Amino acid sequence: NITNLCPFDEVFNATRFASVYAWNRKRISNCVADYSVLYNFAPFFAFKCYGVSPTKLNDLCFTNVYADSFVIRGNEVSQIAPGQTGNIADYNYKLPDDFTGCVIAWNSNKLDSKVGGNYNYLYRLFRKSNLKPFERDISTEIYQAGNKPCNGVAGFNCYFPLRSYGFRPTYGVGHQPYRVVVLSFELLHAPATVCGPKKST
């Protein structure tokens, strides 16, 4: 009989979020998941679920829940969905086509923008091939755009693969920082350890 609540607040209220190319993952297990707390949290810009209804989450049990978190621009949030393409979905964070879970995003301009620009948040701009679902690539190898080998030196046709967002408070909404948490639900042939409040007695 599990009684402790799942530590969703640790994920959602973290002081610093990860850059999207180096997205953070927390495994959540052996706890009671009260999703209504999240669902009623006012400032969400997006709360979209795939393969599961957000209002039914509290009735369900899962083997594991993974909480992935990172920061992207407002106009990139739409790429955090199954079957998407674009710089983020291709080179930074890719969801599987059969994704079961929820994508939760909110504007973090007050936290993550600075006058003069916040350059701490990076994304991958160049990559030889697209990421596989949930693949994480933190390499900083110089990207070779031409035929000539770069030998690890940036220059003509040789690019550092990461780019900084440089968030400023005055940017338009599409270019403002958004914090994103992706909850993915794993249902294995194993005992369920993460259940909603109704199922955990």
Rank of each mutant, 00 (worst) to 15 (best):
F156T: 15
N58W: 06
E141M: 08
G83Q: 09
F156Y: 14
K128Q: 12
K94C: 03
C49I: 00
G196R: 10
Q176C: 02
C150P: 06
A46K: 15
T55N: 15
Y66T: 13
S184A: 08
K56D: 14
F47C: 06
L131D: 03
K132W: 06
G196E: 11
H175C: 10
V32Q: 08
T3R: 07
G101F: 00
A18L: 03
N30L: 02
Y39Q: 15
W23K: 02
R16L: 08
V71P: 01
F12C: 04
D97L: 11
C195Y: 09
T193K: 13
G74K: 10
F47V: 10
G51E: 02
L57S: 04
V173A: 13
T3L: 06
A18R: 06
F167R: 03
I28E: 01
P161A: 07
A145P: 08
G152K: 11
T100L: 12
I80T: 03
F17K: 02
Y123T: 06
D34N: 09
T193V: 09
C150S: 06
A145I: 11
F134R: 07
D137Y: 00
F185Q: 00
Y35M: 15
V71G: 01
Y39S: 14
G172S: 15
G101Y: 00
I72G: 01
S78A: 12
T193C: 08
A190S: 13
Y123R: 14
V65D: 01
T170M: 09
C6N: 06
L5K: 14
P133N: 05
E186T: 09
G83A: 07
N147E: 15
K128G: 11
N92K: 02
C158D: 06
E186V: 04
C31L: 05
G152R: 11
R163F: 08
N130L: 11
S69F: 03
E141A: 11
T140I: 07
P161Q: 06
I104M: 09
I28M: 15
Y123N: 06
N4F: 07
D112A: 00
N64W: 07
P149A: 13
W23G: 04
L162P: 04
P169I: 01
D59G: 09
K110Q: 12
T201E: 15
Y66N: 09
Q144H: 08
R16E: 14
P82D: 01
V65Q: 02
F160T: 14
A81V: 03
G166W: 06
V65F: 08
N118C: 06
R25I: 01
Y119G: 15
G196H: 10
E10Q: 11
A190T: 13
V77Y: 02
A89Y: 01
G196D: 11
K128E: 12
C195I: 10
V103R: 00
Y35T: 08
I142G: 08
P96R: 00
A46G: 09
P7Q: 10
V71T: 07
P197R: 14
V182W: 01
P161I: 02
Y171I: 11
A89M: 02
K198S: 14
K26A: 07
G196N: 11
V103D: 00
K48A: 06
R16D: 12
L111V: 14
G101E: 00
L5R: 13
R136Q: 09
Q176P: 02
W23S: 04
G101D: 00
N157R: 10
C49G: 00
P43T: 06
T55K: 13
N24S: 13
D68A: 01
K110W: 06
K132Y: 07
L122G: 15
G117N: 10
F17Y: 05
P149M: 10
A46L: 15
R136H: 07
A105K: 03
D34V: 01
Y119V: 13
Y143K: 07
G117F: 06
G101A: 00
R127T: 03
A22Q: 11
P161K: 02
G174K: 11
R179S: 02
I138P: 10
S78Y: 07
S36E: 10
I2Q: 13
K110F: 07
A18H: 09
Q176W: 01
N87H: 14
G196Q: 10
Q176L: 03
K132H: 10
W23V: 03
V103C: 04
N130C: 10
D9Q: 13
V103E: 00
N75R: 09
G174E: 15
E135L: 02
A190K: 14
G86K: 03
V37Q: 15
N92G: 02
T170V: 09
Y39F: 15
Y66D: 05
V173N: 11
R16F: 09
G166F: 07
L60H: 08
Y35S: 07
T140F: 08
A22R: 11
H189S: 15
Y93G: 01
L188T: 15
P161L: 03
N120H: 10
A192M: 12
V180S: 00
P82C: 00
K48M: 05
H175W: 12
P177T: 03
L188N: 14
A192K: 12
A154L: 13
A46P: 03
Y143I: 12
P54T: 09
V11T: 04
P191A: 11
Y39D: 15
L5G: 10
N147A: 13
V52P: 04
N107H: 04
Y143R: 07
F45E: 15
G166E: 15
G51H: 09
P197N: 14
N109E: 10
P177D: 04
R25T: 03
G146N: 08
G117K: 08
N157L: 09
P169G: 08
P149R: 12
K110N: 13
I28L: 13
I88E: 00
G146Y: 06
K26R: 13
T15Q: 08
P177L: 05
K148C: 09
N151A: 12
F160R: 15
A67C: 07
Q84G: 12
P161E: 04
A192F: 12
